[in-house]
Design a protein around this nucleic acid. Sequence first.
DNA 1: TACTTCTGATGGCGCTTGTCGTCAAATACT
DNA 2: AGTATTTGACGACAAGCGCCATCAGAAGTA
Lengths: 222, 222
Amino acid sequence: MENTRQIGVQNKQSGRIYGGESAEERLARQRRQFLDAGLELFGTVGYRATTVRMLCKQAGLTDRYFYKTFTDTEDLLAAVYTESLDQIQTEVITAINASANEQLANGAIDAGLEAFFTAFENARVARVCWLEVLGVSPRIDELYTKRIEQFADLLLDLGKSMLPDWRLPEEETRITGLALIGAISQSALHWLLEDYRSSRSTLISANGRLIRGLINTLPQGV
Amino acid sequence: MENTRQIGVQNKQSGRIYGGESAEERLARQRRQFLDAGLELFGTVGYRATTVRMLCKQAGLTDRYFYKTFTDTEDLLAAVYTESLDQIQTEVITAINASANEQLANGAIDAGLEAFFTAFENARVARVCWLEVLGVSPRIDELYTKRIEQFADLLLDLGKSMLPDWRLPEEETRITGLALIGAISQSALHWLLEDYRSSRSTLISANGRLIRGLINTLPQGV
DNA sequence: TACTTCTGATGGCGCTTGTCGTCAAATACT
DNA sequence: AGTATTTGACGACAAGCGCCATCAGAAGTA
């Protein structure tokens, strides 16, 4: 009874080459195709109007491969959102670091804002990150919350490093960071919804003013 | 063949009394029941998970009456959103006016913020206004955009009335107002998503600081 | 009392969705 | 060449949806 299994032993995780790709390469490529399809469809027709069939057609694959990598369209949405924000966050950090060595807070602020708004000039990315991701499910809501908090922390760390004696209470600091992210993201959202009517420099200027204004109100210990 | 129609002539808009209510009263009551059901369901299970059947069950009415007043669940969502924001806006304006006669900007700011965050302590209202309304359709997006701009205008009008010589360019003024609304609304959204963990006074303090900081950065002409 | 309007309950129709199964062709291994 | 695996196309299924029709009974009207 057990020796019958010996026949089928090697077909378990054979993962042979097909079309010049290994099993892992195929899986990775399929995943990428679905991620691209997700960004395209979620960012244009929207998440709730996107079906598995549409995603497969856009990706040029069949549903079998969709379910091999993702459990749900919600699962794919989370992956697309995470990837987009990962990249943007990296770009913002890079931009800040590149200009922060001058020890000039203003330069770092503007550089960060510039990188941020430049990234969201991609309407699909903007739509997914600010419009489609909200109110989908508790799981996605939590993902969103954590990501926003992450961004707020990034901003606050930058601020604290530049203002050595930070005197605001912990809780108010947290809320202030979130509020700032809210200001920046609402700007980006309206930019998108108004078809990028305003210029990027105006957004940077307005939000930079907000940030600098905040810094001035901080209780100074010096 | 035509005289048969004469019999049914008066049944066109008879609108007689039923259950002690006139036709208009019945329609108004049904509308109210659906509005309440909409706020309840959109604010708990969410808009995309809410069906016509659920709404009718919650309202205690049948679908015939739903379609008599609304064309769509989207139509109902727009009505619920509009009604909620109308009320909140009124409360905020009232609060500001009640404390503005003291000519103290700080008092008006805090009073407005207080009214705002108090209103959004209702989780259903908060969820509908900040979570469910986004990314539904172009029509709802536009409604949202207009409402946010309205709020921003309210804020800017208050600011301009208190700072007589406003020197910021028009476009940057607009963006700044939107950014401020974004800061306040993001605070409210996170407040909701974190189950109202922080205290209301902390939110007021953090956002008040942001507004006062902004005012200080404005180019003063005096 | 007869007649009309209004209401609530129920069922059904057409459509779309997620999901799974089948099957022939393409590709790789031995 | 022969076998095993991978792929794409296609179809089918149950479930849920918006929406509409029917029908008996309640509420008003004459």
